[in-house]
Amino acid sequence: MDVFMKGLSKAKEGVVAAAEKTKQGVAEAAGKTKEGVLYVGSKTKEGVVHGVATVAEKTKEQVTNVGGAVVTGVTAVAQKTVEGAGSIAAATGFVKKDQLGKNEEGAPQEGILEDMPVDPDNEAYEMPSEEGYQDYEPEA
């Protein structure tokens, strides 16, 4: 019985440690998101679009440190934060509304985080759909 109880105690310690790591990862992701939003706020009209992409990228980098179902929630929060940063930029006159959601080359930025393969159960990952990809044929 002692062996059984000791095993359960060790398992509990492992769960607590994993929860603490997840909590730490979420806190880091939130900190990076805040950094990115402050970065966007300090940019001029020309830099705002690039700044919004930076927020998304920093958040995406930190999301990889967070495991399990938390990833889905962090990704949703990050996307809403990026959308909010863009709205703030438009409201303050840093950028025109028609410039939001495009990178410096004018290509749409939507789907940055949505296409990231995420499995809350950590069982399997699927690649994003290939609808947006084109076949590449090298020139002879």
Rank of each mutant, 00 (worst) to 15 (best):
S129Q: 05
L8T: 00
A90Y: 08
T44W: 15
G7Q: 10
V15G: 03
T64I: 07
T59C: 14
Y125D: 08
E137K: 03
A76F: 02
A19S: 01
Q79G: 06
D98F: 03
E139A: 06
M5R: 02
N122A: 10
E137Y: 02
T59F: 15
V48G: 01
V66Y: 15
Q62T: 07
D119M: 04
V77I: 06
V26D: 00
V66R: 01
V37T: 00
Y125A: 08
A76Y: 13
A56V: 14
E13F: 09
P138V: 14
K102Q: 10
E131R: 03
Y133F: 13
E105S: 10
A18H: 03
D119E: 11
I88G: 02
V55Y: 02
G132I: 13
G41C: 03
Q109D: 12
D115Q: 11
E46A: 15
V77L: 09
V52R: 02
V95H: 12
K6R: 06
V49S: 06
V71L: 14
F94E: 05
V71H: 04
A11C: 00
A76P: 02
D119C: 06
P138L: 15
T33H: 04
G84S: 11
V3S: 04
P117N: 13
V16A: 07
G106P: 06
I112D: 06
E28Q: 04
V52W: 09
V15Y: 14
T64A: 15
Q62G: 00
E46V: 08
G106L: 12
E126G: 05
A27Q: 11
G67Q: 13
G36Q: 04
A30F: 03
D119G: 14
N103E: 05
A140C: 12
E28N: 10
E28C: 05
Y125K: 07
K21L: 13
Q99V: 10
V15D: 00
D98V: 07
T92V: 07
A30Y: 15
G31S: 13
M1I: 00
V48D: 00
N65D: 03
V37D: 00
K21T: 06
I88A: 05
V66L: 08
A91G: 13
F94G: 05
V48K: 01
P108T: 08
S87K: 06
D121F: 05
S9C: 04
K32F: 15
S129R: 07
D119T: 15
P108W: 05
A27K: 15
N103A: 09
S42A: 14
K45S: 06
K96L: 10
T72H: 00
F94Y: 13
A107F: 14
G14Q: 14
P120Y: 12
T59K: 01
M127R: 12
E105I: 09
Q99D: 14
D115N: 14
N122P: 10
K23V: 10
V71G: 02
E126Q: 11
D135T: 12
L113S: 13
P108Y: 06
K60N: 07
G25C: 15
K96T: 04
V40E: 00
V118A: 03
F4N: 00
A17R: 15
Y39N: 10
G47V: 03
A90W: 12
D135R: 05
E13V: 07
A56H: 08
G93T: 01
E131D: 09
A89E: 03
M127W: 14
E123H: 03
Y39A: 02
T81G: 06
N122E: 02
V16G: 06
N122C: 15
K12L: 11
E13T: 10
K23A: 09
D121N: 13
K23Q: 02
M5S: 04
T33Y: 04
E126T: 05
A85S: 06
A69P: 04
A107E: 12
